[in-house]
Amino acid sequence: MALPSNDTPLYNHPLPDLEQWLQAHGCEQDRNELHCWHLRQSTWEAEIWLDIDQLSVRYLKAGEEGRDIQRAFKYSLSRKDVEDAVFAGP
Results as ranks from 00 to 15, higher is better:
M1K: 13
M1V: 07
A2H: 06
A2N: 10
N6L: 09
L10N: 03
Y11H: 14
Y11N: 15
Y11M: 09
N12D: 13
H13C: 07
P14W: 04
L15H: 14
P16G: 09
D17C: 05
D17K: 15
L18Q: 15
L18G: 09
E19S: 12
Q20N: 13
Q20E: 12
Q20P: 06
L22K: 02
A24T: 14
H25V: 05
G26T: 12
G26K: 08
C27N: 05
E28T: 10
Q29M: 14
D30I: 06
N32C: 06
E33W: 07
E33N: 12
E33R: 12
L34C: 03
H35D: 11
C36F: 04
W37A: 03
H38P: 02
H38N: 13
L39T: 04
L39N: 02
Q41A: 09
Q41L: 05
Q41R: 15
S42K: 06
S42C: 07
E45K: 15
A46L: 02
I48S: 00
I48K: 01
L50D: 02
D51K: 14
I52R: 11
D53W: 05
L55K: 01
L55P: 01
S56H: 05
S56N: 10
S56W: 04
V57W: 02
Y59G: 01
L60H: 12
K61Q: 15
K61V: 03
K61G: 05
A62K: 03
G63Y: 08
R67K: 15
I69R: 03
Q70A: 15
A72L: 04
A72Y: 06
A72D: 13
F73R: 01
F73G: 00
F73P: 00
Y75T: 05
Y75E: 08
S76A: 10
S76N: 12
L77T: 03
S78E: 01
S78D: 00
S78I: 00
R79G: 00
R79A: 10
D81L: 01
V82S: 00
E83Y: 01
E83M: 01
A85P: 06
V86N: 01
A88T: 05
A88Q: 14
P90S: 12
